[in-house]
């Protein structure tokens, strides 16, 4: 009995961390998709940027191949520590988001859907290949900070039911939810958030009301990008880092999250993310070979039986 309980608790805890990642990705994606109706297959690339930036800021990493290595640089990184990473990664994500919006998204707002999909796919490919060729195609170990705020967190903490759990992971979970909470408040309570919400319901109307939507577009995109990058940092702390994670660990789950949660809903993205995170965590700890597959089948079932998602108003993809 006790063993089962502790397993459940462990699943929930891991699920929270994974769920936080999915939620962050989902929120970013849903506000971009909802406000600008811009179909962004490069959302995963932002996660990739976040993960690698986090890696570089956090520690000195040895290189074994790639252009940098070939020109004599054997390691990159700043030993900045985790706090530096938490601060810098969203900033980098925000900046990349602004650039992307200005130079890639904007010229394509009036182009057909398929073109948006194709160009963002191309962009994601280019980014991935750049990382692979410059930094190297190998897999890097996940980030595991040993001190945060000067406090030694490398010792595991003994939690009720779960047993030993790395304390730095608790801290990361805390940070992740803090960001999610802040984002949620920002969207629900601020004027900017109101525009975003209105935008996700009816961007045409918002535009007609004269609200300077273009500036908001940049901000919304950059915010979504920052969230994705931050998710990448969190992801880098529980999983290994390699050039493909943009698609496998981020892009697919991001869309699955909003399918489950409901398009255009921040609440839905959070709920959907957590649900999927827990499912993945549960499967990984029991029948890990089936983990991804069960996740995908769950989403397929959602689509068949509840197409509007948990909190969505309209049917996803209509």
């Amino acid at each position: 009995m006790m063993i089962l309980q502790s397993q459940i608790a462990s699943i929930l805890l891991n699920g929270l961390q994974q769920g936080a990642i999915y939620a962050l990705l989902g929120i970013g994606l849903t506000i971009i998709l909802g406000t600008m109706e811009f179909l962004n297959l490069a959302h995963g690339a932002l996660y990739l940027v976040g993960a690698y930036t986090g890696l570089i800021v956090f520690q000195e990493t040895a290189l074994t191949n790639g252009l940098l290595y070939n020109s004599g640089i054997t390691s990159i990184g700043f030993e900045g520590g985790f706090l530096a990473a938490i601060v810098l990664v969203p900033i980098v994500g925000f900046a990349v988001g602004l650039l992307m919006e200005r130079f890639v998204a904007e010229p394509f707002y009036d182009r057909p859907e398929t073109d948006q999909l194709l160009v963002t796919f191309g962009l994601a490919l280019i980014l991935e290949e750049t990382v692979k060729n410059v930094i190297g195609g190998n897999t890097f170990q996940s980030i595991a900070p040993s001190t945060v705020f000067g406090v030694n967190v490398s010792q595991p903490v003994s939690l009720p039911l779960v047993g030993l759990f790395p304390s730095w992971r608790l801290i990361i979970i805390g940070f992740a939810f803090a960001v999610i909470g802040l984002t949620y408040l920002a969207i629900e309570r601020t004027d900017f958030g109101l525009v975003v919400q209105a935008g996700t319901r009816d961007s045409e109307m918002v535009r007609l009301l004269g609200i300077k939507i273009n500036r908001s577009y940049s901000l919304v995109f950059a915010l979504g990008a920052a969230l994705a990058a931050f998710a990448g940092l969190i992801g880098a702390s529980i999983q290994t880092v390699s050039p493909q994670i943009g698609t496998t660990q981020a892009l697919v789950p991001a869309f699955l999250t909003i399918v489950v949660g409901g398009a255009g809903s921040v609440r839905g993205a959070i709920a959907g993310g957590l649900v999927l995170g827990v499912i993945l965590s549960a499967m990984t700890q029991t029948y890990s070979q089936w983990a991804q597959i069960v996740l995908y089948l769950f989403v397929a079932l959602m689509l068949i039986f509840r197409p509007e998602g948990l909190f969505g108003t309209a049917e996803v993809g209509e």
Partner: peptide, 11 residues
Amino acid sequence: IRRSGVYFAVL
């Protein structure tokens, strides 16, 4: 095919 556009692609 029940979904269109990006959802179809990602599915």
